[in-house]
Amino acid sequence: MTAIDLSDFDVPGRGRGLLDVIQWRYLLKLIVRKGTATRYRNSVLGWTWSYVKPGVQFLVYFLVVGIVLGLNRGVENFPVYLFSGIVAVNLFNEAFGNATTSIVENSSLVRKIYLPRELFPIAAIIVALIHFVPQLAVLLLACLLVGWVPSLLGLAAILLGVLLVVSFALGVGMFFAGINVRYRDAQNFVEIIRMVSVWASPVLYTWTLVKDVAPSWFVHVYMSNPITLAVEMFHFGFWDPTASQTHGYPDQFLLHTLVAIGLCILSLVLGQLTFRRFERTFAQDL
């Protein structure tokens, strides 16, 4: 019997996970282009909605929390404080939601051809980043109007905040994207997380209010949340330079940052493992 050398052949339908994205980057560009092109298709306002929706959200929160509840009087430049937090949480919510539904929304491709399935949640994250840019532009304009002067440390904090949000959204997004193909209840659970995320981070209030009413162990857990850290990084980079007196930061803020980074890495690992586990039956489940 003639021996056949199979060393040059790959096992069908198996890849290297997130590492395959680099090799398939051209296809990733096409998926991203499709996501941005179809976002506001047949819409009269088009990309203007990227400004309108966060603007309305900010106005509602500012009127209710800032004016009615009076936090506007206790936080200097409260509009900048509020909008910088909203921008960070909106990035997470859109990236997380898009990544969760990315496989189901591209079911026709998943069923017909093989390609690294991780391309879809990563493309969803990139699309969320693209729609994050208009909100960031409005925030920058508002900061400049109240005398914002950027610093290298502040810009580094903003970049770290974006990285925390993106990596955490990708990790938990892949986790729920894999589960959502078989169990559509996962999408409803994700909607609950997105709804709570605004209140679970110091967006509409300061972290010191949590410190005043919660035990110290809860404050440590609260501040180690990657989204909470990202919001505080945005506050440090955008709001702090415009305020004469800030609300300060916990004594163990560096430790909280390291824990948040570790949680982001853990979410990426668990998300990838879970995604690969359910990936085997994507075509059948869809």
Rank of each mutant, 00 (worst) to 15 (best):
M1A: 13
D8T: 12
P12V: 00
P12N: 03
G13M: 07
G13H: 10
G17H: 05
L27Y: 14
L30P: 01
I31P: 01
V32Y: 04
T38F: 14
R41A: 15
S43G: 06
V44Y: 13
T48C: 15
T48M: 15
Q57I: 01
Q57V: 00
G74R: 13
V75Y: 06
V87H: 02
A88E: 04
V110F: 02
I113N: 09
L115D: 04
E118I: 06
E118H: 06
F120D: 02
A123E: 10
I126F: 11
V127M: 10
H131L: 03
H131G: 15
P134I: 01
L139T: 09
L140W: 11
L145P: 05
P150H: 01
L153I: 13
A156D: 08
L159N: 04
L159R: 07
L160K: 13
G171S: 08
F175S: 00
G178D: 05
G178N: 06
I179E: 00
I179A: 05
R182Y: 13
D185F: 11
N188R: 09
N188E: 07
N188T: 09
F189V: 14
V190Y: 08
I192Q: 02
V196H: 01
S197A: 15
A200Q: 02
P202Q: 03
L204W: 02
L209T: 12
V210A: 12
V213M: 12
V213D: 09
S216M: 13
V219H: 06
V219D: 03
V231L: 05
M233D: 13
F238K: 06
W239P: 04
S244A: 13
Q252T: 14
F253V: 10
T257S: 15
I265Y: 11
L268Y: 08
V269L: 11
V269T: 01
L270G: 12
R276W: 00
R277A: 12
R280Q: 12
T281R: 14
T281G: 08
D285H: 15
